[in-house]
């Protein structure tokens, strides 16, 4: 069950990336890309925090945060003179993938184990 949300977010991300790179159009593009831009970056950033918010409020927060992250990526591309829709979506997709992977239970427990191991090595060294 905990894996359903990350899978949905990653699937939406992949679908949006493919549609944009393949220059697809029509309603499918609108739904996939619109859904991705409006939801995925914010949802991926919010999930690790596990904030005690009601589901509708959480969704509203995810949308606002998605718009903010998309705005930062868009503004950066403009100031760097590297404007491209494909590049913008790819950067956003990378952000989503990294944030989603960080939140996976195996990665989390692995990270915790790594921290513990480094801590014990440090203790032995000192």
């Amino acid at each position: 069950m905990p894996l359903i949300a990350p899978i949905v977010i990653l699937a939406l991300t992949m679908a949006a990336e493919i549609v944009v790179l393949a220059s697809g159009d029509g309603v499918v593009r609108m739904v996939l890309v619109g859904g991705f831009l409006a939801f995925a970056p914010g949802a991926a950033a919010l999930r690790p925090l596990q904030l005690p918010l009601q589901s509708l409020a959480w969704a509203g927060f995810a949308v606002t945060l998605s718009l903010a992250i998309t705005g930062i990526v868009a503004g950066s591309l403009l100031y760097l003179g590297a404007w491209s829709g494909e590049l913008g979506v790819t950067i956003l997709a990378l952000i989503v993938v990294v944030l989603t992977l960080v939140d996976l239970p195996t990665v989390r427990s692995g990270a915790r184990a790594l921290v513990r191991m480094l801590g014990s090595q440090q203790e032995r060294g000192s």
Binding site: A16, V20, S23, G24, D25, R29, M30, V33, G34, L37, L67, T70, G71, V73, A74, G75, L77, L78, G85, G88, V89
Partner: peptide, 16 residues
């Protein structure tokens, strides 16, 4: 203060 317009521009570009 182009933040909002950049966001809207990227949305429209990627939506085709």
């Amino acid at each position: 203060w182009p933040g909002f317009f950049a966001l809207a521009g990227l949305v429209s570009t990627t939506m085709g």
